[in-house]
């Protein structure tokens, strides 16, 4: 054994530190995932087991009764569809109008830039309470309260600062030479933006779409204030209703509905997983 040299000692050390690092990451993941796992587990437990006083991570008796209860309620289904609609439309509009703007901000250097970038930063400072009431008054005069289009409009405006800031950082990385070549070939500005810049920025555009969708899917208070008709509510508003009078006694159905509300986000993250980890962007820029 003594003949084992320093090199294998170092390899051992490296292996130990690698195991330690995996261990640390797993501790983080337990913290970050446990509440979700507990919620999923609760959603599949029959009501007596929920109240049994014994913490079981895997339900002893497996039931989908809570999901059936939830799906029998038409309002919840409608609210899921409303949320999907609002999220998708918001995401598409935000990216379609922010990409040209991001391009304009990086490629043209005029006095407008400081104004726009200044606004992006300052807009983050203001609490929603300052905007809520005047916004309601303005939207009412446009007949856009209690309408999904009105809500989409609000979310688009709400998401622009972050998406714009994110995209312009990426546009900056793209060498101008690529566009020059296209411009010489007679490409219009729109073609340059959507045919050259956008494909190169696919990971960033994907991340922006994801961000816009999720922030619309998740948003609660504007929806609560702006939407009044029961058939127009979004999922978060509908969920909040569960916590009201009936909430306390309905732990199971609430867990089931909460899990349903989380599924689209998880699916989207899984789809975009490659984009997050891929070096596609760096390759395109450096190569």
């Amino acid at each position: 054994m003594e003949s084992m040299n320093i090199i294998s000692g170092r390899m051992l050390k490296r292996r130990v530190s690698r195991v330690l690092m995996h261990g640390l990451i797993l501790m983080f993941l337990v913290y970050l995932l446990f509440p979700l796992i507990w919620m999923i587990s609760t959603s599949f437990k029959p009501t007596p087991e929920i109240y049994s006083g014994i913490p079981t991570l895997i339900p002893e008796v497996f039931t989908i009764e809570h999901y059936l209860t939830v799906l029998e309620e038409e309002r919840l289904l409608v609210s899921i569809l409303n949320s999907l609609y609002v999220g998708i439309v918001t995401a598409i509009i935000v990216v379609l109008i922010s990409l040209p703007a991001a391009y304009a901000l990086t490629r043209y250097r005029t006095s407008v830039n400081k104004l726009v970038m200044g606004w992006i930063l300052t807009s983050q400072i203001f609490p929603a309470i300052l905007i809520m009431i005047p916004l309601f008054i303005i939207l009412r005069s446009l007949h856009l309260t209690d309408s999904l289009s009105g809500l989409v409009l609000v979310y688009v405006v709400w998401d622009i600062p972050f998406v714009l800031w994110m995209l312009q950082g990426y546009v900056k990385e793209i060498p101008v030479e690529l566009e020059e070549a296209a411009a010489i070939d007679g490409a219009t500005q729109g073609q340059i933006i959507f045919k050259i810049i956008m494909p190169l920025l696919l990971p960033a555009v994907g991340a922006a779409v994801l961000f816009a969708f999720i922030s619309a899917w998740n948003e609660f208070f504007f929806a609560l204030v702006l939407l009044k008709s029961p058939d127009l509510t979004t999922l978060p508003v509908e969920l909040a209703r569960y916590t009201g009078i009936e909430g306390q006694a309905r732990t199971g159905p609430l867990a089931a509905a909460s899990f349903i509300a989380t599924i689209p986000s998880i699916v989207l993250f899984a789809i975009l997983r490659k984009w997050f980890s891929s070096g596609a962007l760096q390759g395109a820029v450096k190569g």
Partner: peptide, 29 residues
């Protein structure tokens, strides 16, 4: 490390959840 991209996706789960669900979940905890 190995499995890093899996870890990165899993780590994002809390962020992906609607704030209202985050609240409901922690209320259950």
């Amino acid at each position: 490390l190995r499995w890093t991209s899996l870890y990165s996706v899993l780590m994002l789960v809390p962020w992906a959840m609607p704030p209202i669900v985050r609240g409901l979940m922690w209320r259950q905890i």
